[in-house]
Simulated assay, not measured.
Amino acid sequence: MVASLSLPRIMRVGRGAAEELGEVVAGLGLSRPLLVTDAFLVGTGAADRLAETLRKAGLHPRLFSDTVPDPTTDSLAPGLEALHDHRADAVIGFGGGSPMDSAKALALLGVQGGRMRDYRAPRVNHGPALPVIAVPTTAGSGSEATQFTVITDSGTDEKMLCLGPAFLPLAAVVDVELTMSMPPRLTADTGVDALTHAVEAYVSRRANPFSDGLALTAIGTIGRHLRRAYADGSDTRAREAMMLAATQAGIAFSNSSVALVHGMSRPIGAHFHVAHGLSNAMLFPAVTAFSVHAAPDRYADCARALGAATAMDADEVAADRLVDELRGLCRDLDVPTPRSHGIDREAWIRLTPLMAEQALASGSPANNPVVPTADQIQDLYGRIYA
């Protein structure tokens, strides 16, 4: 098997890396970036500080802050207008997964036009697109190092996975100082998101030796530090470890794939407006329990890396312990069920067949150790509700 690998050309990783953003952008020969972020980061002053870093490097940035959680085709329209008005030659995604997903989509639409639906999976998008520079503020999505973006179709509520090298950031600037203000709920949700990326990358049918090493390293780091970061947001060492692990997990799944958890998670986010990391966490233990029998050796490796099993444990025992550890982790991080999160039971039941159909259509379940049927996905949705 030949693995096709893609990474950002430039990565600046470490405390204070954001201060070098202007140098990175200027070094790429760019001068008019559109800085895509959200209202929260404008409110904290972080977006203006980053824009000033760009101006000090002699660049001419424009700020676009009207991104929304789980970006939609409608939310991209004003961003596209800002991109063209500014005559932008690059797009900087600054924030969590939503600003970065928006930035990636705008970079492609700004050059190629058309509708986002034209670029959804299974199409692989090679470009052209404007260069993307990613500056994450959460330790979870790994979007700064992936060739994926997820945009919800405003007309159908379908959360569309779009993939290909056109969406891979040209540069990533990863600075732990940008994550220090994350509240506990966001810390938990993004941390479980990163763990899901790493585990699914490792057990995926498209796993390879390159992604394997990064995935196992990320799993081990998250196992040692996620609870610490959740309990004490000022624990700089835990925050730094989680930031690095999230990027490693992003590189791993971008060069392998995600699987059933992500396939089922996207429709929950689209129809019930649940944050992506949280919907992953709701699904993670049950989907893993459904899947472990098909690849006990791979799941056992994950359990050992996470610290849930030892080298002395048989693979089947270790794989089962992984499921137990994921359940325990979700309890410790106060992950709600869909019911306790406030999702109406009748709406959940009514939409389950459509969510199962959309999960399968995304292509991610086909990478799972067990490729599920629509009925099996509906059953899993039923199990996790309460």
Score class of each variant (00 low, 15 high):
L76K: 14
G22L: 07
N280C: 15
D48S: 13
V192Y: 06
D232L: 03
A218R: 06
M100K: 00
F253D: 10
R266N: 06
R383W: 02
A215Q: 04
L109D: 06
G43W: 05
A47M: 13
D175K: 08
T37S: 15
D101R: 12
L195E: 02
A303G: 08
H84G: 07
P169N: 13
T73S: 14
A107I: 04
H225G: 01
V135H: 04
T337P: 02
N367G: 02
N125F: 01
K159W: 07
A366T: 11
G213N: 09
V124D: 09
A77R: 15
V135L: 07
S211H: 09
T138K: 06
V132M: 01
M182T: 06
H60T: 13
A145M: 15
M355G: 03
K159Q: 10
A3F: 06
S234N: 08
R205D: 00
R206Y: 10
E316K: 13
T288D: 08
A103L: 11
F284R: 03
I251C: 10
F272I: 01
G363M: 03
A374P: 00
T221R: 02
A47I: 12
P183M: 10
A51P: 08
H60A: 14
M355R: 01
R205G: 02
A47F: 14
D212G: 06
A361P: 04
V203F: 06
D313G: 14
L34C: 10
P372G: 08
V13H: 05
V192T: 02
L163H: 12
A57R: 08
V25Y: 06
D235E: 03
V192H: 04
I151Y: 06
L333Q: 04
S364F: 05
A88H: 09
R345K: 10
G96F: 02
L106W: 11
G93M: 07
D332C: 02
Q378M: 14
G114A: 15
P183Y: 09
F253T: 13
A201C: 11
N208C: 12
G213Y: 08
L360A: 02
A201F: 05
C330V: 03
R87M: 08
G140N: 05
D324H: 14
G96E: 05
A198I: 03
G263P: 03
M243R: 05
S265E: 11
D375R: 15
L108K: 12
P338F: 01
V199K: 06
S234K: 06
M242Y: 05
M264E: 01
S340E: 04
